[in-house]
Write a protein that binds this DNA or RNA. Structure first.
Lengths: 138, 138
DNA sequence: GCTTGACCTAGATTGCACTCTAGATTTTAA
DNA sequence: TTAAAATCTAGAGTGCAATCTAGGTCAAGC
């Protein structure tokens, strides 16, 4: 409960990479696990736990979770113990989505890399026109 | 040069999954490798090569290439042989971006899966409140 | 005390990539 | 031949996720 752990919105922006606008937006969208307290003057006072939550949010967002889903997850966590099965279902669903995305990207990578290899060969052999007859022109 | 290979916009929508609106949008954005010819009445007439290009476009788009970049790539291909080094650079750059994205997703997956495992244990052991003291509440 | 920088709110704007609308025309099938 | 289905254009609208603006207020250092 030391006061040295209190963080301004600017501090939080710095450590989370989120930008003060985004942090206020997150709050409007009820993405935090608690109401962020204010100073007498009305300025937000964060704690390390808020930062940790935001870092998890970043992971979930970067891996493609929409704000709406993150919002549902935050609401579940906020409402305390007893809904762990729902949280689990949400996370499992997201994990599946991410695995699917990785599989899709990996499939795309093979095609893209194939093209890269072909172009690389072509460029290495000289760019003189007409020496190369690709199946497709791209 | 058989006429049986001529496709309407609806046909192309069906086989590419792209939707007629998107196809018209792609054309406005100059994402095709050639001007799509029209019937006497003004309706678009596609050929299989257009479909193949669109399937590649889908791969590139799904793997995160912005329309603007796809546009540049299309312009390079359209302008014929001689710029293969540029096309290669563009594709290599995209390949790098996709590999980075896969790495990021994989890292996120580990964290998400870790949470899933913890929640799964907890839910399996019974959801009675208070039995579980997670480091973080999420 | 005062300046300077950080912060406040509510609401407008941005950027991307479609997606849809309205009203007309063309094509296909019965 | 005619009704229904598909297509046409130009431009407006949508959804997401911020991001910025204007007009202030607050707080820290000199």
């Amino acid at each position: 409960m030391t006061d040295t752990d209190r963080l301004s919105i600017g501090d939080v922006a710095k450590v989370t990479g989120l930008g003060v606008h985004a942090l206020r937006f997150f709050e409007r969208e009820e993405l935090f696990l608690r109401p962020i307290p204010r100073t007498a003057g009305g300025q937000r006072v964060y704690e390390p736990a808020d930062v940790e939550w935001l870092l998890l949010c970043n992971r979930l967002r970067e891996s493609g979770m929409p704000i709406a889903t993150l919002k549902r997850f935050a609401a579940l966590v906020r409402s305390g113990p007893g809904n762990e099965a729902e949280r689990l279902a949400l996370l499992e669903e997201h994990e599946r989505a991410v695995r699917d995305k990785v599989a899709e990207l990996t499939a795309s990578l093979e095609i893209i890399h194939g093209k890269v290899v072909i172009y690389r060969q072509h460029v290495e052999e000289g760019t003189a026109a007409g020496l190369w007859s690709p199946a497709s022109s791209a």
